[in-house]
């Protein structure tokens, strides 16, 4: 089964390579990170490096988000539409192996993309750093950690995309579903903070209970947002990084298991 998973993941990743996806990303990243970001951040007065870091992380996050949503929808849905899935599954490959293999393919693609974006953003940041000398030079460990947690966020959203695609009969549910998960996941912490504040006491009980359920049910993407830590070199502990990584891993396991269950019950004609 492990061999099947690796094979499917490999095919999925190669699909990305063949579609010149990475080439497009490299060209886009070169333009944005080396030309656009240093020139835009120079508008700042005394925090050029900070603005450049902020822009870089937002660009990485945005490209990864678009890619995750696009890939997680098309991964399974396209296979179903073109009936590739039927021929793959008629081989001695189990359904769980197919789903997990597809997801791993997505993971490898996202990791590879993140590495490309990270590496190209580094010279851009060095250029911006050199434009204005501050007493707060870039802290690479924080920047790496923030990029890593952006990747984790996308892996969670990708798992949701696979779950929704595993039972959806059209592309709209996975599309709006993943976008919705991204928005809800980003907001749950703010909503939770709000209901815990004095303002929250005026809310009806049903809204409070609903918000609390959503808080625990949907991924907490705010916890994985370390942009401010990277931009302003704020203290960041390895313990925290370990906790959120473990959280992401277990969350993905739950969602993927549900995807496997849903796909096992799916009728493929």
């Amino acid at each position: 089964m492990l061999k099947d998973i690796i094979n499917i993941a490999g095919v999925t990743f190669k699909g990305g390579l063949r579609s010149r996806l990475f080439l497009t990303i490299v060209v886009l990243a070169l333009l944005v990170f080396l030309i656009l970001i240093p020139s835009m951040s120079s508008f700042s007065m005394r925090q050029i490096r900070e603005v450049a870091t902020s822009l870089s992380l937002s660009v990485i996050s945005f490209i990864l988000l678009v890619l995750t949503i696009f890939l997680s929808i098309t991964l399974i849905y396209r296979d179903m539409e073109s009936r590739v899935a039927i021929s793959v599954l008629s081989l001695p490959i189990s359904r769980p192996a197919y789903i997990i293999g597809k997801y791993l393919g997505l993971v490898v693609t996202l990791v590879f993309t993140t590495l490309i974006l990270f590496c190209i953003s580094v010279p851009g940041l060095i250029i911006s750093d050199a434009l204005y000398k501050t007493d707060m030079p870039i802290k690479w460990s924080n920047y790496m950690a923030a990029t890593f947690t952006e990747l984790l966020k996308m892996l969670i959203i990708g798992a949701w995309g696979v779950l929704l695609s595993s039972f959806a009969t059209n592309a709209f549910l996975p599309l709006f579903g993943t976008v919705g998960i991204y928005i809800i996941g980003t907001l749950t912490q703010s909503i939770y903070d709000y209901i815990r504040s004095p303002y929250g006491e005026e809310l009806p009980a049903i809204a409070v209970i609903g918000s609390k359920i959503a808080y625990y049910l949907f991924p907490n993407l705010t916890a994985l947002d370390l942009k401010f830590k990277a931009i302003y070199n704020l203290p960041l502990s390895y313990g925290y990084l370990g906790t959120v990584s473990l959280y992401s891993l277990t969350y993905i396991t739950v969602v993927l298991s549900l995807a496997v269950l849903a796909f096992n019950r799916r009728q493929i004609l």
């Binding site: 902020s54 937002s58 945005f62 980003t186 947002d225 942009k227 931009i231």
Partner: peptide, 8 residues
């Protein structure tokens, strides 16, 4: 509205 890009 800023989602996770509120700094930017």
């Amino acid at each position: 509205m800023g989602l996770d890009h509120r700094g930017l």
